[in-house]
Simulated assay, not measured.
Amino acid sequence: MQRILYLHGFASSSLSTKAVQTQAYFAALPNVHFQALDLPYTPDAAMQVLEQAIVQPPTAIIGSSLGGFLATVLAERIGCRACVINPAVAPHRVLSQFLGEYEHPVLQQRYQVQAQHMQQLEALMPMRLQQPSRYLVLLQSGDEVLDYRLAVDYYQGAQVQLVTGGDHSFVGYQDYLPHIADFCLQPQETGSQITV
């Protein structure tokens, strides 16, 4: 049984469009256990949930935006593959613009995003990837939230697919699910590649 873990982005949930599409796709595959977690907004609390989830290490982790950052943190710790979609690179620099109170749509809890949480994110960030070939990176140049060029630079040596246009939600995501599943479920190493 192969285990796939899905991590949503900031102010999102396991009920997001991408999470639901991903779960539906993997549910149709044999011998796959898929889990989409609902993560707290504070980094330390999110990491506690994740550390419990990886007691049984996943085959691969899929993460979107901030979930892509957390997927990278976990993949570096346990040595599994990861597919990241419009991932946040150095999210402490971006989320510092979004301090304030939020309500989680599934957990139905309120969270206060504070400056100290940016320090927690910065401390989590891997300075470099140990084995970039373990990553599939899906980027759209029209991302209005994150600068895709930061991800191109950070994930050097990974399999990077850069799509012209689109937005932060990653337009047409569902069409990429067969490729994502193939990457996540096949025990193969992939070389450096950037496609447009």
Rank of each mutant, 00 (worst) to 15 (best):
A123S: 14
P30R: 02
V32S: 09
A45V: 00
P91S: 07
V160G: 02
L50V: 02
H8S: 00
A45Q: 06
Q109F: 03
E51K: 15
A36H: 08
Q112D: 05
T190S: 10
C80D: 08
H8A: 02
R110N: 03
K18Q: 13
Y148I: 09
Q131T: 14
V55D: 13
T42D: 06
Q114S: 13
I4D: 05
Q161E: 11
Q52W: 06
L95D: 05
H117C: 06
Y6H: 04
Y25I: 01
P43W: 14
P43N: 08
Q52M: 11
P187C: 04
L70W: 10
L146M: 00
A123E: 12
Y173C: 09
H179P: 01
M47D: 03
V152M: 10
G142V: 10
I85L: 11
D175P: 04
Q161I: 12
R93V: 10
I194N: 08
V32G: 07
Q159V: 06
I4E: 08
G63C: 07
V196Y: 15
M47P: 12
H117A: 11
V89M: 02
P58W: 12
E103I: 04
G100D: 09
K18V: 02
T195V: 09
V137G: 07
G68S: 09
Q174G: 07
Q2F: 08
L162M: 03
G9Y: 05
G166M: 13
S141H: 01
S192F: 10
L39S: 12
E144G: 06
S141D: 06
S96T: 13
A27M: 07
Q23L: 11
F26K: 03
M127Y: 00
H104D: 00
H33N: 10
G142Y: 06
G63P: 09
E51S: 10
D44K: 15
P187T: 03
P30M: 08
F98S: 05
L138C: 07
A75D: 00
E144D: 06
V171S: 08
V84E: 01
V113P: 01
D167Q: 03
F69D: 02
A46N: 14
V73D: 07
G100L: 02
R110Q: 01
S65Q: 13
Q112K: 07
Y155W: 04
T190F: 14
E51H: 13
A24V: 11
A24S: 13
V113C: 03
Q161V: 15
L146R: 09
P132L: 07
A24K: 14
P187A: 15
R81Q: 14
L29F: 11
A53Q: 13
E51R: 15
Y41C: 00
S16G: 06
Q48L: 14
G63H: 08
T22V: 07
C184P: 00
L66G: 05
